[in-house]
Simulated scan of single mutants.
Amino acid sequence: MEIVYKKLVELIPYVNNPRNNEAAVDKVASSIQEFGFKVPIIVDSQNVIIAGHTRFKASKKLGLQEVPCIVSDDLTEAQVKAFRIADNKVSELATWDEELLSLELEQLAEMGYDLELTGVEMDELGELLEDEEDEQEEDKYTSKIDVPQYEITGECPSLDELVDGEKTDELIKAIQNSNVSEKEKAFLIKAATRHYVFDYAKIAEYYAHADEEMQALMEDSALVIIDYADAIRNGYTNLYLDVSEMCEEDSHEG
């Protein structure tokens, strides 16, 4: 396959070209400026363009005098018509792996490269890079955590064993006996509940013994973590990390 250079004025756009390519001309022109003319225009023996109308228009915009071409004189008239359509339609069947695309764009951004030269629209660039940042933020937490296994290891503890409410009970009693307003009492009582101390080792054991409905409610209450994606969305990750540290300290002390 021979590449020949032809004067731009010699090339003839196909009069019935069904592809509307005006929106792509500027980006193709930028691509040619940045990378060079890497994909030749395909013409027939009469210099009528078979494929490459957008590159032709971009070349005119850039003021190029000559462009690389491939003369395809081995196709029938029917094949030429079919190829004009196939050249555009077949590429539409391909899809993007957005995770890998985001990774490539992220690496280009780190290199200081102008991402607009990739042809990706600015709105799409923002979404792709934001998705990549979100995944990295999620990985920052989840990659450090082993998935817990809640299995029965002993007898089921009673509900009273799961939480120590002594401090809370003392505070509530003091609040109720105080002379503050009823609204202030209600507020302080809510604040006092922060002093409940949960025994997460026993909670895990209770969870393993519980029925499905109770398990689901315990998960929603952040007493146990099953799905880290849900945990992050619901703001439970920091709680779990604190719980893990507490359990580790208990195991070392034991």
Rank of each mutant, 00 (worst) to 15 (best):
M1H: 07
L8P: 04
I12N: 02
P13I: 03
P13S: 04
N17V: 07
N21Q: 11
V25A: 05
V25I: 10
V28D: 00
F35H: 09
P40F: 01
I41K: 02
Q46L: 06
I50S: 08
T54A: 09
R55C: 00
F56D: 01
A58S: 06
S59L: 05
L62S: 03
L64C: 01
Q65P: 00
Q65A: 04
D73S: 12
E77T: 08
E77P: 01
R84H: 10
A86N: 11
D87R: 06
V90L: 14
W96K: 12
D97K: 12
E110S: 12
M111H: 09
G112F: 02
D114S: 14
M122V: 13
E127M: 05
L128D: 08
L128R: 15
L128T: 06
Q136K: 15
D139C: 01
V147S: 10
P148C: 07
C156Y: 06
L159Q: 08
E161R: 08
D164Q: 09
E170M: 11
L171R: 12
A174W: 06
I175F: 00
Q176L: 15
S178P: 14
S178C: 08
N179E: 11
E184Q: 15
K185M: 03
L188Q: 15
Y196S: 06
F198V: 14
Y200V: 04
K202P: 04
A204K: 01
A204D: 09
E205C: 05
Y206N: 10
A208D: 05
A210M: 02
A216W: 03
D220I: 02
S221K: 05
A222Y: 10
L223V: 08
V224S: 03
A229R: 12
D230H: 10
D230R: 14
A231N: 07
N234D: 15
N234S: 07
L241H: 07
E248Q: 13
